[in-house]
Structure formats: structure tokens, C-alpha cells
Simulated assay, not measured.
Amino acid sequence: MSFFRRDREPPRRPIEDVDLDSLLGLVADSLGFVCEFARDGASLTLRGDGVTAMVVKLTGLRREAGRRAREDWPVLVSEHLAHALATADERYDACDLDQAGPLLRTRVESVDEVADLTRVVGRHLNADLVELLTIGTRLVRPEEAGCWPVPTARALDLAVANVRREERLRTENIELGGTPVTRLTGRGPSAATHLRWLGDYRPVPADGVLAVLPDPYTVLVHPVDGIGVVRAIERLRVHAARTGGLSPQVYWWHAGRLTLIKADIVLQRGQTRLVVAPPPEFARILARLAV
């Protein structure tokens, strides 16, 4: 009996990876590049006339493609390669957490101001506001965060820790129509992130504080420690509406959560009134404070 050795065939790659590679090759060709894929498919090298060869990481792109419909892939691939070319001169590799980690920061924005929440990395502070992940000043893309060996929540926690370590807000006591408030201002667009450790800046009562966010660099707060909080809601709401910045709303910061206190400015019979509809938990606090 004779035995014939047969060369082991390389494992077949998932059809999704093959299709994505085909798209990458087509887009690279349209941009004037020839691409060469690494054997493990984790990266490709772009080569073009007069251009230094450039390695593009693909791990995060493949993960993001797996979460999206196939009809989204052409745009996803085009944006990924365009972004790689646009950031080729950055002094760090955004797909390497060891390099990007110390540069991670947060930026708070209105949900309405973010064109596409699927193309950024972040988490909701509430229904109106989102805390976005940045590297330096630019937003992190899902394909970049997808390369990291930690989940998104952990990356955001790293960014929050960086914000706390690198910046301390400037504190001022001011008045809004006779109501005392504390204004906290920072150099970066992460002022709302500092609410997590507000006790480092001023005493925080057990019932929390009112907060408005006129812009990403500023937070105004007023303690929830007496029935005067009703007038403070009015003063803060009017101030936030006038600034026309990050959010015109008043929020309640309590137990690590930022909750909307719905307050509408309405015009009735030629007079401006504030109609407040507080959440049930805050309404119970108001009832207690009124006794």
C-alpha cells in the first residue's frame, strides 16, 4: 500500500472578507493605488507612483462591516481609505491603543448636531446629549476603535480619566437675575464630563444640582437645596435659551445621571411664562422642599 502526501489547502476565508477585499481593491484602484493584502487580512499596503507605501489597518473595518448591511459597504470602504490617506501624516497610529490611549478625550455635543451617530464613537448622557470620543481634537471613527483590544465603554472610560487628569475647570460664582450659580469653564470641549466629579469643585447636596450647558466648554450649576430651586430653573432656562449654544434645556445631575427637566418658554396674552414639567423623582423632591 502506498501513501501519497497531499499539500494542505489553505483554510477558506469567509465570503464576507473576500467580498470586502474586492471592494477595497476597486476603491484603491480608483484612487490610483495598487493594494497588497497581508496574509492574515488584518491590513493592506497601498502603493502608487511617487507615493510612499502606506499600511492601512483593516481589523476595525471588518468588524464595522459585519454590523452593517452590504449596501453600506461601498461608502464604508471609500470613507475608510479616504480617512487613512487624510490622516497619513499623523504622528500616531490611531488603531494602536498604546499610541492613541494617552490622547483620548471626550467632547459633549447635542444629538441634533451630529450628522450620523453611527459614524462616531460615543455614548448618550441623555436623549439630548452625547459624549463623543476624540483623539486630540478629532472624532474617533468606529473602524479605528474596532482595532483596539478593549470595548468602546472601556475606551470612553480611559478618555474620561484623561480629561480628569489633564484639566481642571475654572470656577466662578455669578448671579442670574439675583439667583447665585456656579460657572465652570474649561479649555477643552469636555466641561460636562467634569460633572462626574463635581464635588471636587464645590459642595454637592444629596439631592444633586441643576445644570445647564450653554456650550461644550461651560457648565452652570445651582444646588438643589431649597425651594429657591424653582426660581433657579427659570433663570437657568432663560439664560440657556439666550446663549443658543449646546443646549437650551435645564438638567438635573443626580446619582451620576443627567436628567432633563422639561421647561418650555411660552407666550400667553403678551406675557412670557415658563411651564415646567419635572420628572417624577424630581417632582417629589420639589414637594418635599416646599414643606
Score class of each variant (00 low, 15 high):
Gly60Ala: 06
Tyr92Glu: 00
Arg13Phe: 12
Leu20His: 02
Thr137Ser: 14
Ala86Phe: 07
Gly101Pro: 07
Val291Pro: 03
Pro203Ser: 09
Val18Ser: 03
Ala84His: 00
Gly199Pro: 02
Pro14Glu: 06
Gln249Gly: 00
Cys95Asn: 02
Glu281Trp: 00
Gly177Asp: 15
Thr171Phe: 08
Val121Leu: 05
Thr179Gln: 15
Pro205Leu: 09
Pro14Arg: 09
Arg202Trp: 05
Arg237Ser: 02
Leu169Met: 14
Ala86Ser: 14
Asp112Phe: 13
Asp40Leu: 04
Gly66Arg: 07
Val75Ser: 09
Asp157Arg: 14
Val224Cys: 06
Leu169Lys: 04
Ile15Asp: 14
Pro11Arg: 10
His239Gln: 08
Gly48Cys: 07
Ala155Arg: 10
Val209Thr: 03
Arg164Asn: 06
Ala211Met: 07
Leu213Thr: 11
His222Thr: 10
His254Pro: 02
Gly270Arg: 13
Asp207Ser: 05
Gly199Glu: 15
Leu139Thr: 00
Val276Met: 14
Thr171Met: 11
Thr152Trp: 00
Pro216Val: 11
Leu133Trp: 03
Leu260Lys: 03
Ala155Ser: 14
Trp197Glu: 02
Glu172Phe: 09
Ala263Asp: 10
Arg47Phe: 00
Cys147Gln: 03
Ala191Glu: 05
Leu58Cys: 00
Leu213Cys: 15
Gly228Arg: 13
Leu274Lys: 04
Glu175His: 13
Ala191Gly: 07
Gly66Phe: 02
Arg183Ile: 04
Ala69Glu: 15
Thr243Arg: 14
Ile135Gln: 07
Gly25Arg: 01
Val77Gln: 03
Thr106Phe: 09
Gly244Ser: 12
Asp89Met: 04
Arg196Ala: 05
Pro248Phe: 03
Thr134Cys: 15
Leu23Glu: 02
Trp252Met: 05
Ala255Trp: 06
Thr179Ile: 15
Val221His: 04
Pro11Gln: 09
Val75Gln: 11
Pro10Gln: 14
Asp89Phe: 07
Val108Met: 04
Pro151Val: 07
Thr193Ser: 12
Ser43Gly: 08
Val27Asp: 02
Ala82Asn: 09
Thr134Phe: 06
Glu16Thr: 09
Val55Trp: 01
Arg237Lys: 13
Gln99Arg: 09
Leu46Gln: 01
Thr59Leu: 05
Ala277Val: 13
Asp215Met: 10
Ala240Ser: 13
Leu125Pro: 00
Ser30Phe: 01
Asp264Arg: 15
Asp29Glu: 10
Ala84Val: 04
Pro149Asn: 11
Val163Gln: 00
Ser247Phe: 10
Val130Gly: 01
Tyr201Ile: 09
Thr179Lys: 10
Ser22Asp: 10
Arg231Pro: 02
Lys262Val: 06
Asp98Lys: 07
Phe37Pro: 03
Val224Gln: 08
Arg70Val: 11
His239Cys: 07
Gly32Lys: 05
Asp96Ser: 14
Ser22Tyr: 00
Pro151Ala: 06
Ala290Arg: 15
Tyr251Asp: 06
Arg183Lys: 13
Gly25Pro: 00
Val51Tyr: 06
Arg183Val: 07
Arg187Asn: 04
Ala88Arg: 15
Ala82Trp: 03
Ala191Arg: 01
Val275Phe: 06
Glu9Lys: 14
His239Phe: 11
His194Cys: 13
Leu129His: 05
Asp116Asn: 13
Ile227Thr: 00
Arg154Gly: 03
Pro151Gln: 08
Met54Arg: 05
Leu158Trp: 00
Thr134Asp: 08
Ala232Thr: 08
Val150Lys: 08
Leu286Gly: 02
Arg235Tyr: 05
Pro11Ile: 05
Asp207Ile: 02
